Computed example of a mutant assay.
Amino acid sequence: MLDNLLKRRSQYALGDSLPIPKEEADRLIREAIRQAPSSFNSQSSRALILFGQESRRFWRFVEEALRALVPEPDFPRTQKRLGGFAAGAGTVLFFEDQSVVEELQKKFPLYAENFPIWSEHSTAMAQLAVWTTLADAGVGASLQHYNPLVDDKVAAAWDLPASWKLRAQLPFGSNEAEPTEKNFIDDDGRFLTFG
Rank of each mutant, 00 (worst) to 15 (best):
P71M: 05
E102I: 05
L48R: 00
P76I: 00
T132N: 15
T123F: 15
Q53L: 15
V62L: 09
F115W: 04
V100I: 02
G52R: 07
L66N: 01
A126L: 14
M125K: 09
Q53G: 12
E113Q: 08
R57P: 04
R67P: 05
K80E: 13
A112G: 11
Q127S: 07
Q79G: 09
E103I: 09
T91I: 01
A112T: 11
F51E: 04
G84A: 02
Q79A: 15
P116N: 00
S99G: 09
D74Y: 13
L50C: 03
R77S: 05
A68V: 12
F94H: 03
Q53K: 12
A141H: 12
P109Y: 08
S42F: 04
R67L: 08
E102W: 09
F108M: 14
L69R: 15
F51M: 06
L93T: 05
D74P: 15
P73A: 11
G83S: 10
G90L: 04
D74T: 10
S42R: 05
Y111N: 13
A65Q: 03
G88L: 11
R46M: 03
Y111E: 06
E54G: 01
F115L: 11
R57C: 00
V139A: 02
L93E: 00
P109M: 06
F51S: 10
L66E: 01
F85H: 14
R60G: 08
R56E: 10
V100P: 00
G90H: 00
G90R: 00
N114W: 13
S119G: 11
Q43M: 09
R56L: 05
R81V: 12
M125T: 04
I49S: 11
F58A: 02
E63V: 08
F108C: 15
P109H: 12
L50W: 02
A129H: 10
V92N: 01
F58D: 05
Q43N: 14
A65I: 01
R56T: 06
Q79C: 12
A126H: 11
V139Q: 08
F94T: 02
S45L: 08
S119D: 09
V92H: 00
G138Y: 01
W59F: 08
P73L: 05
A112N: 04
L66I: 06
L128K: 06
D136H: 04
Q79H: 12
Q127L: 03
D74Q: 15
R67I: 07
I117C: 03
I117W: 10
T132G: 14
T133E: 03
L134K: 06
A89S: 09
R57W: 03
Q43T: 11
P109E: 06
E54M: 00
F61Q: 06
A47G: 08
M125R: 07
Y111P: 09
N114Q: 15
L93C: 03
L93Y: 03
E63W: 08
A141T: 10
Q98W: 15
G140W: 07
F108W: 15
V62Y: 05
V70F: 07
R67F: 09
A65P: 04
Q98F: 10
F94E: 02
F58P: 02
E102C: 03
A68Y: 13
D74N: 15
G84V: 00
D97L: 15
